[in-house]
Computed example of a mutant assay.
Amino acid sequence: MWTTTVLLLLLPHALSSTDKGQTRFNQSEIVHQDFSDAPVKGQKPLGGVKGQDTCSIPCDITVKLLRDEKHSICGQLQQSLLAFGRSTRKLIRDVMEEQQRALDVLGSQVTELMTKVQTLSFEVQRSNTELYSVKPVQSHGRDCSDIKDNLMSVVPKIPSGIYILHPENTDSSFEVFCEMDYMGGGWTVIQRRTDGLTDFKRPWADYVDGFGNLAGEHWLGLKKVFHIVNQKDTRFQLHIALVSHDDVTSYASYDDFQLDTEIQFFSIHLGRYAGSAGDAFRGYDQEQNQDTAPFSASDVDNDGCKPFCSISNRTVESCSAQHNHTGWWFNQCGLANLNGCSEDAEQNRGQRTHILWDTWTQNGIPHSIKSVTMKIRRIATNN
């Protein structure tokens, strides 16, 4: 019986702890004794079935057994919890490392994809430019007038198109659009407005370097124009061709056109006026005179409104801001801005485009201008 075996293992310890006056039992007798025949006095027999032999264990031994068993279970549980905690932390760490590796791989793939997209976009842009732009004619000259003079002896009819210029006393070559069939040809186009597809709301740097499509709307760039018109022993005419929304044409011409250096903000200098559109550059009085004015843009203000100008009973602090952040030779704003554009091209379609040449009027009202071209041509060489 399980009870007898437990008692045999525990009795030596229990008997050794009894008082000196306690009766000593013969161990051999206990081995052969059936505990079910001699229950301990004062204890209730284990089990509860009437008429069945029972065995009882002393209370202090039972308590000790339960306590030892509890401590053993608690120790095992504590060890299990510690092991579970370690394994859980390791699992979480492994998962986080795996996620980080996956994120690194994904980030690398995204970077590679963005590089491919940018490369593809550049290729598409270049293809579109090659497809829709006029190919440059590989002929060099100091300006379009010089190119015309050089080609007249070898080509019966010189076509308009994109040519390569290399003005003297400069280290740079650049492309321009040459008009070879307008009023005798030899014109270098420095600005063209036709369809509203090019945004002229630009900062100073863009107006210095140029922008747009040479075969369509564009601004050649103040630095390039400066190199052309400031060649030695040359003088250039400025011609402005205007077309209204009702297809009326007009022009303004100046027999001398010069620009100062960038340090002087490319101030404009104009000679005598001729034409049918009126001299809007000089206006009707000195306050409107834009001749000798430095160039201004949204981020470089040279318009003379310090601290502000009063125009038509309105206070204006910046002419560029007043003209929708475009660049021009403003002087207290003035009557001309061929780079002007409206806030919303769609909303103002069919109305005034804000390309201004306000001395060109009909019944006292300035024309609504649809397109304009500014071009220059060499007119004299002083020896």
Rank of each mutant, 00 (worst) to 15 (best):
T115S: 10
T326P: 06
S310V: 15
S56A: 03
G141W: 00
P45K: 07
E130P: 06
L106A: 15
I379D: 07
E262C: 07
A345Y: 10
V31T: 10
S173G: 06
E130L: 14
F174A: 09
E217K: 05
T194C: 09
S172F: 04
W329Q: 03
G364F: 07
D279V: 08
G107Q: 14
K223E: 09
F295E: 03
I164T: 15
G196E: 12
T88D: 03
S139I: 14
Y163E: 10
G278V: 04
C333R: 10
G278S: 08
I365Q: 13
K370Y: 05
S276H: 04
C74G: 06
H245K: 14
R272H: 04
D260Y: 12
M180P: 02
H32K: 09
R89I: 08
E123F: 02
H354Y: 10
D143P: 06
T353G: 03
A215W: 02
G48T: 11
L220P: 08
G85H: 14
R101H: 09
P12W: 02
V6R: 13
S160H: 10
F281R: 01
Q332I: 02
K157D: 12
T194V: 11
K201P: 00
W360Y: 05
S127A: 13
A380T: 11
H218P: 14
I369M: 05
G271N: 02
I268T: 08
G275R: 07
K306G: 13
D199G: 01
V6Q: 14
G334E: 06
I57K: 01
G141M: 06
G212L: 03
S17W: 04
T4W: 04
Q109W: 02
T115M: 09
T54E: 01
E98W: 00
L46I: 00
D146C: 11
T373R: 03
Q125A: 01
Q258Y: 07
F330Q: 00
T115N: 05
I379H: 08
Q22G: 02
S310Y: 14
